[in-house]
Amino acid sequence: MDKAEANRQFARCMREHGVDVPDPGPDGNLQFDAGAAGDRNKAVAAASACQRYLPNGGELQNLSPEQLEQARAFAKCMREHGIDMPDPDPNTGLSAILKGGIDFNSPEFQAATQACKGVVQR
């Protein structure tokens, strides 16, 4: 299964679990806005139920040094804007953001995300 199809299945699964996630764009990438997902607990539960559709079961692996540095820079930027976001795990690239107490719907999170979105290059 190619990336675009896997991402379409992931988005469909998320919607089936009550989280409004649009289908991937023309490039096959998901355009997921954590703040628009609604109830954080519902989004975390849905992501857990649907992660089987993502490459490597949703585990990020083999990040390039540049990708890991971007993830660190994003986390640092978010902290500078008042969000207590941990640095990513150097082995997987994942952070504890979904397991933490971050309120994705808060105005502070939304403002920090907007301020920091330029840190990550696509």
Rank of each mutant, 00 (worst) to 15 (best):
G38C: 08
L54M: 13
R52C: 11
Y53D: 12
R15V: 15
A45D: 09
F10A: 14
G18K: 02
A37P: 05
C50N: 06
C13E: 14
A37V: 08
C50G: 14
A49D: 05
A34R: 05
G18P: 03
F10N: 12
D33T: 06
G38N: 01
S48R: 03
A36S: 15
A36N: 10
A49G: 00
S48G: 12
D23Y: 06
D20I: 02
L30M: 09
F32V: 05
A47S: 11
G18W: 05
L54T: 02
R12P: 14
A47N: 12
V44Y: 08
D23Q: 07
V44T: 12
R15Q: 14
K42L: 15
C13F: 08
L30N: 09
L54P: 06
D39T: 03
V44K: 01
P55Q: 00
P22R: 07
S48M: 00
P26N: 07
A11F: 12
V19K: 00
A34D: 13
K42I: 13
R52V: 14
A45N: 02
L54A: 10
D20Y: 01
G38S: 09
A37K: 00
P22S: 15
C13Y: 11
D23L: 13
G28I: 03
A11Q: 14
D33P: 03
D33E: 11
L54S: 04
A36P: 00
P26E: 14
A43Y: 03
D20P: 07
Q31R: 08
N29M: 10
N29C: 07
R12V: 15
G28S: 11
G35Y: 03
A47L: 01
C13R: 03
Q31D: 12
C50K: 04
L54C: 05
Q51G: 09
R15M: 04
A47H: 02
V19L: 05
Y53A: 10
A43P: 02
G18L: 00
G25P: 11
P55T: 06
L30Y: 04
C50V: 10
C13G: 14
A46W: 01
A46H: 00
D39W: 01
E16N: 12
N56A: 15
G35T: 07
G57F: 09
C13I: 10
G18M: 06
A45Q: 01
P24A: 05
C13P: 14
A34H: 04
A47E: 11
P24T: 05
H17I: 04
A11V: 12
F10W: 14
A49Y: 04
A46K: 02
P22F: 11
V44S: 09
P24Y: 03
